[in-house]
Simulated assay, not measured.
Amino acid sequence: MPKLLSVFRIIALLEGISYILLLFIATPLKHLANDPQYVKLLGMPHGVLFMAYIVFAIFISKDMKWNSKTLWIVLLASIIPFGTFYIDRKYLKSNG
């Protein structure tokens, strides 16, 4: 389990970074500077990381002994900017 937790922590970090870059850099550049290249560049990796985050969260939830409320918090954090960083600190770091 520690290896899966380590992989999940890396996915959570990368998903969080890609979301921040997409939301606060790529999207404003697309709309303000009419330059969609950064959204195109970051969109697919972020989507893959987002899906991996969801799958890994569900997969490790039983091993982490998360109740359904905790699992929902972990899942919802993926759509909130900086949410995955909070999850790492609150739910993953102390167990890893």
Score class of each variant (00 low, 15 high):
L21Q: 13
M51R: 02
L92M: 13
S6L: 07
I20A: 15
L49D: 04
V39C: 08
V7K: 01
L23T: 15
D35M: 02
L29A: 11
L13N: 00
N67G: 15
L23A: 15
D88F: 00
R89F: 00
V7T: 04
V7L: 04
I11Q: 00
S94L: 06
H46W: 05
L42F: 14
G47D: 11
L42H: 08
T84S: 04
L92N: 05
L29E: 13
M44C: 13
L22N: 09
F8H: 09
I87Y: 01
H31Y: 15
H31C: 12
L49H: 01
I79Q: 12
A52F: 00
L22M: 15
S18A: 11
T84G: 03
K65P: 05
L5R: 11
D63L: 04
L4G: 02
P28Q: 13
G96T: 09
W72E: 10
L75N: 10
P28E: 15
G83L: 04
Y53Q: 01
Y91L: 03
I60A: 09
T70W: 03
E15Y: 02
M1W: 07
V74Q: 07
V7R: 02
F56D: 00
Y86I: 05
W66N: 09
L49M: 06
I58P: 02
K30M: 08
E15D: 09
G16L: 06
I20W: 12
W72D: 10
F85G: 03
Y53C: 01
T27M: 15
N95E: 11
A77N: 09
A77V: 07
I25T: 14
L41D: 06
G16H: 05
M44V: 15
F24A: 14
I80F: 13
L71H: 09
T27G: 12
F8A: 11
Y53M: 02
N95A: 12
L21E: 13
F50K: 07
A12C: 07
V39F: 03
T70I: 10
V48L: 13
E15V: 01
H46G: 05
N95D: 08
D35H: 01
G47M: 08
A52C: 01
P45M: 12
I73V: 11
Y38A: 10
D88C: 02
D88Y: 01
I10Y: 01
L76V: 13
T27A: 15
L22V: 12
V74Y: 05
G47L: 12
S6D: 07
P81M: 14
V39S: 11
M64C: 13
S61I: 11
G96W: 12
Y86V: 04
A12L: 03
V55W: 02
G16Q: 06
A77Q: 05
R9P: 03
I80Y: 10
K30E: 09
F8E: 03
K40Y: 11
G96C: 06
L29S: 10
P2T: 10
L71K: 12
L23P: 06
S78M: 05
I10E: 02
L13A: 05
L71N: 12
P36K: 08
I17Y: 04
F85T: 06
F59E: 03
L75Q: 09
L21A: 15
V74K: 04
